[in-house]
């Protein structure tokens, strides 16, 4: 076996698989779904963080208004 045999095997790795259109379309769909899932996850994190922020601000405001913070 020689380096040329190896190069031949590497270069033919792309040619051996025939028609790629179905595979390319499937991967395109997979990419789109993955990006959508990520975006949804990011929105959920932002939503949860916003809710937690509102809850914290409300609690602090309530504690200030009712004198609970001053009592501490």
């Amino acid at each position: 076996m020689s380096l040329d045999d190896l190069l031949g095997a590497i270069r033919s790795a792309d040619a051996d698989t025939g028609d790629d259109s179905d595979l390319a379309a499937a991967t395109r769909l997979r990419v789109a779904r993955s990006l959508e899932t990520r975006a949804r996850g990011r929105h959920q994190v932002v939503g949860l963080a916003t809710a937690a922020g509102i809850l914290l601000a409300g609690t602090v405001s309530w504690a200030l208004a009712t004198g609970h913070i001053a009592a501490l």
């Binding site: 095997a9 590497i10 270069r11 790795a13 792309d14 698989t17 790629d20 595979l23 390319a24 991967t27 395109r28 990419v31 789109a32 990006l35 959508e36 975006a39």
Partner: peptide, 30 residues
């Protein structure tokens, strides 16, 4: 996200070719 799709259409074949030559396995390349 539409821009990713456009980049995919324009460059997927070159990336797939490189990945196959690098790993020698269709599933891993995909």
């Amino acid at each position: 996200r539409a821009a990713v799709e456009e980049v995919y259409v324009a460059h997927h074949a070159a990336i797939r070719g490189f990945a196959r030559r690098l790993v020698g396995d269709t599933a891993a390349a995909e």
